[in-house]
Design a protein around this nucleic acid. Structure first.
Lengths: 338, 338
DNA sequence: CTGAAAGCGCTTACAG
DNA sequence: CTGAAAGCGCTTACAG
């Protein structure tokens, strides 16, 4: 094999520019101004000729700044996660950081491994959308002074900022809308709440507010995405309360997807039986007459998470965000029109 | 501020274990077997006590192996890209690599910057789903011996393996299906093909095969996602050929989304006017009577891309994949049932 | 089987 | 304004 041409190093640039490594380093660091114009020009030229780019590994090693942020995502194929990730990535770039995204596919073991790995790459901060409760790993980061922000889900015994939807508000807005539209009985469909503080909160709030409003209510948990248990629950609910105007409220995008399928299986007409979901999905407008949703401001949430981190990494670069809890936006469509 | 507790280093572990740095390094590298059981035990214990984890930055610097792969994605919010990214990430993990994902939002400038950055982090290989033609940057990688694999789209003047769908086959399968179902006139809707070899190939093949089969055909390019031009094209097409059985073939998921909206605007009944799309999306089954699609084997494609890279990085770890071009799967639904 | 030492490509006091 | 030198945390010949 022919010897592979290597990336050029700071030493080569220095030599070609007739300067010291120190100066070249300064040129590519924050101290370019300290260099005389002529030195700057020589270095610029030499670097250009050699196609030089500082090695971030070396930089990180010596300076202690990897310029890397890590993000742990529970399920990268979930549209909500995709949207958030997009926001986080944008924000990172804005602060001059790169992002290492790790998907755990909701597997606690993968989650732990990824977290260790992120540590090994010396990420300077971490956005965590947890699937399990990787307490030990997170505490390791915290005790080393690496800031962490939790996204959407809290983690037991881990104290960190939590960026997410105002779940109480979301449920209340949904129920208020359903009541306004004249529905009298509401079935709440959610994925299994264990492991997700968000799901727990939404479910609890559903029970709370629904009691308070005097609404007929019930709930069903999705078992393993097949939805057969919920099919049963749904038809029972409708049968029991057929003298009332019934609606289904879905706790997140996945629930909306499953329930929409069930509506089709049962040949229910959207609107006559109300349907509403938390999370806006691209197809919600397409299922005629449209599915009413509560959209989350995902870009803002992603940006806020990064801002939290940056505030702790480099307090001068970013102020603490004003709020970590976000309001949803009601997108009204035919599915809640009786 | 209190001094932040740092990560422990190899030296600390060595001291605590009463061993040399060399041995600790061996323990965490590929040479653990060379150590006596008792030494291994001491090191394991010391490392456990200190919560030691090798610093990947330092490892990469000295050993030249960052254990990092880079991936450039043109549009991370596109479901096809998400699916591919998922496959790539899974495969990375399998080979013990981590993945840095960079999204360019279809912006050539961001693309160039990200590529430079990926270089700075010494990625050992690169999966590129290009949005522009970052020839210079890619050549830099190539000339340094960093393997590259192109995903879905070719890049002018860059010689590298291309992993993607067999576009000719896909178009032919689609047209064959439409003919079988009795459609006689087909309108092809695609996003603007410049910058995407895939779009070009599909469009060209559409014209070719359609001629050959003697089908009435036309095509329309989506302008800026609003679809108004295509709305016009569609109604014209239908008006002109109303004595024939008409169908629309969508070049990718975005086209399918837009055209589905147009069908609703024009109040066309699916099936009577045929509709079919390349790319399977989660909602295609939900728009009754279901939209017929050609699904891409995204996980396999992602894995294959990584396998290509690994074969070049560590020939012993992976053989060259047998094929880089994949066949789609026809998912037949009501939208192509007259 | 084990270790001392050199060096990967940078940054950062320190000195002038 | 500029540079020589030490050192970040590792790996890898080299030696025994």
């Amino acid at each position: 094999m022919p010897p592979t041409p290597r990336r050029s190093t700071i030493l080569e640039v220095a030599r070609l520019a007739g300067a010291s490594k120190t100066s070249v380093s300064r040129y590519f660091g924050e101290e370019r101004d300290r260099l005389s114009p002529s030195l700057q020009a020589r270095i610029a030229h030499a670097a250009g000729t050699l196609g030089y780019q500082p090695n971030q590994m070396a930089r990180g090693l010596k300076g202690g700044r990897s310029k890397l942020l890590g993000m742990l995502v529970a399920d990268i194929r979930n549209p909500f996660s995709v949207a958030i990730t997009h926001g986080v990535e944008q924000a990172c770039r804005q602060y001059g950081y790169s992002l290492v995204v790790c998907n755990t596919d909701n597997d606690p073991e993968q989650e732990r491994q990824h977290l260790d790995l992120l540590g090994a790459y010396q990420v300077e901060g971490l956005v965590v959308n947890a699937s399990g409760s990787p307490e030990r790993q997170l505490h390791t980061f915290i005790s080393q002074g690496t800031p962490i922000v939790l996204l959407d889900r809290e983690v037991d015994h881990v104290e960190a900022e939590v960026v997410g939807l105002d779940n109480h508000l979301a449920i209340d807005m949904a129920l208020e809308h359903l009541v306004d539209q004249g529905y009298q009985a509401v079935l709440y469909v959610s994925e299994a709440p264990q492991q997700s503080s968000t799901r727990q909160k939404r479910l609890a709030r559903f029970n709370h507010t629904t009691e308070q409003l005097g609404l007929i209510h019930s709930s069903s948990l999705l078992a393993n995405s097949d939805g057969t248990a919920t099919l049963q629950a749904l038809s029972d609910f409708l049968a029991t309360h057929q003298q009332h105007a019934c609606a289904v409220l879905c706790g997140n995008g996945n629930a909306t997807l499953t329930v929409t399928r069930l509506f089709q299986q049962l040949d229910l007409s959207l609107g006559k039986i109300g349907l509403m979901g938390i999370d806006e999905l691209e197809w919600c407008a397409l299922i005629s007459p449209g599915i009413t949703t509560l959209a989350q401001p995902t870009d803002a949430m992603g940006k806020t998470a990064v801002q939290c981190l940056m505030h702790r990494i480099a307090p001068h670069a970013s102020s603490m965000p004003a709020a970590l809890s976000f309001s949803p936006t009601l997108i009204e469509r035919g599915s809640t029109q009786r």
